[in-house]
Nucleic acid binder design. Sequence first.
DNA 1: TCTGGGGTCCTAGGACCC
DNA 2: TCTGGGGTCCTAGGACCC
Length: 418
Amino acid sequence: MKDNRTIFHIDVNSAYLSWEAVHRLQHGYGIDLRRIPSVVGGDPKTRHGIILAKSIPAKKYKIKTGETLHSALQKCPSLTIIAPSYGLYMKCSNAMVEILKEYSPNIQRYSVDECFLDYTGMERHFGEPETAAYMIKDRIENELGFTVNIGISTNKLLAKMASDFTKPNRVHTLYHEEIPSKMWPLPVEDLFMVGRATAPKLHKLGICTIGQLANYSLEHIKYILKSHGEMIWKYANGIEDSKVRISNYENMKGIGNSTTVAFDVEDKRTAYMILLGLTETVSMRLRDAKSCCRVIAVEIKNTNFTRYTHQKKLFSPTDTTKHIYTVVKSLFDEAWKGESIRHLGVRVSTLSSNQFSQLSLFDEKDIEKRKALDNTIDSIRSNFGSKSIIRASFLHSGVKPLIGGVGAEDYPMMSSIL
DNA sequence: TCTGGGGTCCTAGGACCC
DNA sequence: TCTGGGGTCCTAGGACCC
């Protein structure tokens, strides 16, 4: 086993909420949201009413991330509710990464509020790992105003588990020899990759702690849970050796946008309009990543919350809005069962570079014109704002011409393999 | 006026080929 | 007239993460 690396996992404490709190303090708002029961959440009127982040005082009321605002208000009627502003979060995240880059060139953005940093070989510049971690943590607090937890170990899994120990504003280590004392006593559902569905299966086997999983028969766990079983058994034993990889477009697997519509969608015309708004955003992001896709998928969630998808592999890769939208419409027509729709999604995958366009014999001859049109629209939007040019069909429709987002600062996130 | 949106990976089953 | 089995591609759905 190679134990010769030093990996940090940096995790912003209650990210969205802390960032809102700092932003408000900087703009003369006298109350620190982190010190009162408060949450960041969407608007129930538009059916976005769930908790995205909570303060530590809100946590004392047993308010949980993902629960409805309605239910949170019943637990704490005086709760302060803040609407999310994703642009602010991206700025805060970027500012943090700029600090991290001073301590290692090898940083993986795992999500908007989590990074891995490979500290291997950096001791001679910044000292022992713990010394450097405290330095980073304190700099973020002093310069940016929010706090982080930093976990230190020899691989990403253990570093991530360590950063999840006591919060906020702490540095923790979890080296191999510390696994039995620091990680094994924890409930098995605290282990990365043990979620809602796996935990009850483990309980049925009499496994309630990470230590019990670590010392369980690997053969048996593989038999019950297949490859996932083997993975979590290794994690419970601290075995994991993936690299800290710099995020870039090349290793991005797919791009998708989806939206819960403020009203029930009952007719095809309205559904098409929303799908066009989603397709505009997805295909702009696709071109921004200099990629083409070969698989296009549509997702429908009806008012009973049942969800289904329909996808299609194309004969040749594409990145044009019009082509993708044509396929999206036909996928929707084939899939939709006619019920009331709550949520729609468009996603593209099986990506390839668009640098060398591979025209098939069957491509329509105006493909170059459509590409030129897309490029023109993209550049108008990037120079004059995303609302500067929209399709006429959206005028007075009540449907947004561009739906969903993350935009130009896009970076690939999250792989369950770490 | 109850239940978001962005991802990745794995598995199972059917089609098709040899 | 017996019904094999491996490999690959494709699709749908589920599990997990933040």
